[in-house]
Design a binder for these strands. Sequence first.
DNA 1: GATCGCCTCCCCCGTGCGGGGGAGGTCCGT
DNA 2: ACGGACCTCCCCCGCACGGGGGAGGCGATC
Lengths: 220, 220
Amino acid sequence: MPVTVLLVDDEPLVRAGLRAVLEAQPDIEVVGEAADGAAVIPLVRRLRPDVVAMDVRMPLLDGIEATRALLRTVDEPPRILVVTTFENDEYVYEALRAGADGFLLKRARPAEIVHAVRLIAEGESLLFPASVRQLAAEYGDDGGNRAARAVMERAQLTEREAEVLRLMARGLSNAEIAARLVVGTETVKSHVSAVLAKLGARDRTQAVIAAYESGFVAPG
Amino acid sequence: MPVTVLLVDDEPLVRAGLRAVLEAQPDIEVVGEAADGAAVIPLVRRLRPDVVAMDVRMPLLDGIEATRALLRTVDEPPRILVVTTFENDEYVYEALRAGADGFLLKRARPAEIVHAVRLIAEGESLLFPASVRQLAAEYGDDGGNRAARAVMERAQLTEREAEVLRLMARGLSNAEIAARLVVGTETVKSHVSAVLAKLGARDRTQAVIAAYESGFVAPG
DNA sequence: GATCGCCTCCCCCGTGCGGGGGAGGTCCGT
DNA sequence: ACGGACCTCCCCCGCACGGGGGAGGCGATC
């Protein structure tokens, strides 16, 4: 069964773009569109999409309120992927706190958009996507720092994963972490992979950055 | 010509240990010992060692004052490797500010000690040795944070290297940094290697950690 | 008793990374 | 005119890393 997606954005152009990108995938199906947050709830009830790709900034009812409303009133609510133009959008931060499962920049490459939808659909959280930081760096921006602080709260790292991340953030290699925790390196690799997936990090360096940015580990 | 080393430590046991470790290397020669900072200057004038391995905490004249005195009164002073027991020793911090070229934990493994001496002798600064952070982690300590702050001041990164480090600290890969700086990936690798060497980091993750710990990049 | 999350360990595999060299170019200070 | 620092690019090479799978044990929950 394909992943079903509902698009919510007040700009028809954006909806068309997302539709084009997503429908090009055989395993993704766009089942509906809405131009405003107010229209979302009945549509979700009727269409039961797996994922709602929702703009944060919309007239009448914005993405934050729409997210809250969805999670409050719909049982088995869809996964919510927040879409935004700006990498340091505090609306995004609030949306994540409201229960959104991930966020995505509109200027992300098609492959990244597709990837994000798939991840979200699979139940993964995409709270610290590498693309955000990369794009932020490319544009000389500071990046989604506020949003980063919401990462760890929602990343739901297990105790062991958190322990591994702390050691990663001290510069230990997988082998060193394994020695310290008295487990095999394969085990450490598993935990590291889990951490990377949950944080949306591509490699350990990005995970450590996320740890610092979120305050999970503190410098000094 | 071998690297000549002068050992300065008030504990004979430590001197003997260092001598044993270093003399086992064909390219390193221990040319003298001193039990106190006050004895260092005349010995240095006479023996002209390449490297002085100096304890920070000593009676009469400590390693900090001895470092200052050496750099002030001896022309072509030797390279100074500060040796310490504690990873968060603020004396070490002061010694680095006074002009020491690197620091080393007494509990470091022999191979690391040898490595440190060679690096220092070659003119490299060893200000953020991986061993410090690793050992700190292993002992559950917070690590040499104060000392870390002295790193960047003395690491003498070139403009380009600093630029590369900033991008590393945003999670970019070598290829991405290359694209952003419009240079080849081989060039980026060169800069990255230079950064790692100057920071005493083993990999980019440790370099990014050093960047955060030193305040070179700031979270939030 | 069955299910689920978590921790543990295993396989294969491609590649990005980092070490160790070298080399040519510019610019600058002497 | 020369050295030296810096930036640039090149080679080879080994390995840790990370992706994508799978699988067993264990405790808690239902």
